[in-house]
Design a protein around this nucleic acid. Structure first.
Length: 139
DNA sequence: GCCAACGTTGGC
DNA sequence: GCCAACGTTGGC
């Protein structure tokens, strides 16, 4: 199983809205960046991801799971853009802030630190375990 | 709200 | 195929 990180501006689509979708989940549509799309194409059913609030909040607030593999993005007819569906698994007991991540020497290679504009990012097994521990949350 | 960093577009 | 112009993202 692989791990990922999904970014969203909470003013547009936040953790509470994601949670409200329940196990049916929701399309992660709207991605118009090839690298982010390619990351979604690499995802498999059951892969897990962090849900991160960008622009305001600036913290990882929950864990999500891929519940549908990549398919056409329903918000466009352009066949270049497809996306997965994700559902909320559990919130973080303690959100892990960007400042915490930036100040942890073990997390300096995270895409969140190195390529801050990428909206769908891979996370390593090690990073997954460290961030979950920081948030006092089951992996 | 600003603006640096970055990705994309399109003229040549 | 280069690169200037432009648009968007996201931390501050």
């Amino acid at each position: 199983m692989a791990f990922w990180l999904f970014k969203s501006e909470p003013d547009v689509w936040g953790w509470d809205q994601q949670t409200a979708k329940g196990d049916a989940g929701e399309e992660w549509h709207g991605v118009r960046n090839y690298q982010a799309r390619n990351n979604m194409r690499a995802m498999k059913m059951g892969d897990r991801g962090f849900f991160y609030h960008s622009r305001s909040g600036l913290e990882i607030v929950g864990i999500v799971e891929v519940c549908a593999e990549t398919h056409q993005d329903s918000t466009t007819d352009d066949a270049r853009w497809d996306c997965v569906d994700i559902k909320a698994v559990r919130p973080f007991t303690t959100p892990v802030t960007l400042a915490q991540i930036k100040s942890d020497p073990r997390l300096q290679d995270m895409a969140l630190v190195k390529s801050s504009r990428l909206s769908v990012q891979p996370v390593t097994d090690e990073e997954w375990a460290i961030v979950c521990a920081l948030g006092h949350t089951n992996p």
